[in-house]
Design a protein around this nucleic acid. Structure first.
Lengths: 211, 211
DNA sequence: CAGAATCTTGACCGGACGGTCAGATTCGGT
DNA sequence: ACCGAATCTGACCGTCCGGTCAAGATTCTG
């Protein structure tokens, strides 16, 4: 197929396969529920191979988490800038978060499980980078509010609510599917979700439609 | 202290202690993260005693879940009745959910972890009782909407959002504490949360203030 | 092509953990 | 006081699972 003599190919391919498999398995059962054997099978490699590349289960888990966190430091935040009208900004932010829930539910679930455990590994991230981001975005909210473009609400709490609403469609989709009696969350359902969340956020924050 | 000759006292006391300890431990690490030994220690009983009363770890877990589910079939739903004005009803519902998050965070976390695992045990509850409740409450929403008391939004999604927003203060409190740089979520924080969630829901649903 | 470096893998190990059990103790009724 | 039922518990067992290892295969480098 491809005859180029590539170096380091094995390492790259194997680690990628392992990380992908690990993300799926960790998403299914959390750290404690995951079995190295299961990850190995899912990756199509012998278990000893995982240990060759990652050493221990915890190091593998950390590697998976790391990749996920850099996604949480996400493109969504770029919507929240003073130059934009809050209607446009918040719509974009919500949509970006919802897209993430739809396209990478495993990542969202692993992050959720980590928080449920008390966030032993991601605490530095939460108290550092994420806290800083929220502070920055809060300034933008304050700016919009003083301009009369939206209500004065505690910005941090608004973000907690947006995160909660959007991630619930990834983390707890089994509940949503059960209540809606659907086999899988389809495009229509996500469209309804987007409309609902956007409405709650925009109207809830008293954002007037962009002129 | 109390000298009444009570029968079955041992059973009642022991099972209660075990269930309470189990709820705490399961909330901390989920089913897979919990250790029977840990639960025993926390309950102040030898491990064999847990097995005497509950047989297996899974049966103990089921017992804990059962107790939690009957709380989910909660008092909150009683707020959502046609006779009430939606402003009052939704405020009460949100407040009840938030109270639950504040007062029984362990229960909320165990439920969340169970959903994350794919809800192997509570699926019948979700697809049965809970689905039915949502259908009932959706009728009330439709009633209010046709009366012009609130906007037409997909009622089920509004509930998903309310659940998500309120439970996030229990399930992911570690994240909220980190971002707010607080040691524990205090009364003021929950007051802010209540104000924010209520504002998002009421204004978001276009509920006019009660006359 | 030789030798080094990297990678692969089946077989194995040790500890942790859920679960068992038999004997001791306490309880409840009469 | 007595007896059967219920309760308690330390010691033990078997399995599962993360992790190791050494020998072989493959790939890289000069």
């Amino acid at each position: 197929m491809d005859s180029l003599p590539e170096t380091g190919t094995a390492r790259r391919d194997s680690t990628a396969a392992i990380l992908a498999a690990a993300e799926r398995v960790f998403a299914r059962g959390g750290f404690d529920g995951a079995r190295m054997n299961e990850i190995a099978t899912e990756a199509g490699l012998p278990k000893a191979n995982l240990h060759y590349y990652f050493g221990t289960k915890e190091r593998l888990y950390r590697a998976v988490l790391e990749a996920i966190l850099t996604q949480w430091l996400d493109a969504a935040a770029e919507w929240i800038v003073p130059g934009r009208h809050p209607a446009e900004a918040l719509t974009g932010y919500v949509q970006a978060k919802l897209d993430h829930a739809r396209l990478r539910p495993e990542a969202s679930r692993i992050f959720a499980a980590e928080l449920l455990r008390g966030a032993p590994l991601v605490m530095p991230f939460l108290a550092g980078e994420q806290r800083r981001r929220v502070q920055d975005m809060s300034l933008v909210f304050a700016h919009w509010a003083t301009q009369g473009l939206m209500d004065h609400l505690p910005p941090a709490h608004v973000f907690f609510c947006i995160w909660a609403m959007t991630q619930t469609y990834a983390d707890f989709d089994v509940q949503i599917r059960a209540v809606l009696a659907q086999d899988a969350l389809d495009g229509q359902t996500f469209a309804d979700a987007a409309a609902t969340v956007t409405a709650l956020v925009l109207k809830g924050c008293g954002v007037r439609a962009a002129d």
